[in-house]
Amino acid sequence: MDTSSPSAFVNGALLRRYIGQKVRTVVQVIGSDNGSVVGKSTDDLQIVVRGSSPPSPLTTYLEVIGIAESENAIRAETLTNFGNTFDPQNYNELCKLANGEFKHLFI
């Protein structure tokens, strides 16, 4: 397993902790144009995803792996369609656990 470049699970609020670092999150797509996607994070914050051309067509949910540029923007390296029935609430809980009590279990 490649642990050289870990990506932290984040939601919208946690993004600011990882500015300049690699993160992964899932957003609900609100709109996209010219290689950027505007999405809603699992904790209902707006995130702008740039850098990588989004897959087409986009599904409702999109996983984003990339570098946190600011507290609401990610420069994407990988974009993956996550389907239309993703459960954002569970993901949000995962992000909180992975950055809180159980941080030690995650790299």
């Binding site: 029935t85 459960d87 609430q89 569970n90 809980e93 656990l97 009590e101």
Partner: peptide, 16 residues
């Protein structure tokens, strides 16, 4: 998986 995860989260919550 979704509901199972919810179930697990709830259980963890209780455990804590």
């Amino acid at each position: 998986y979704s509901s199972n995860t919810r179930f697990m989260l709830e259980a963890m919550d209780k455990l804590r």
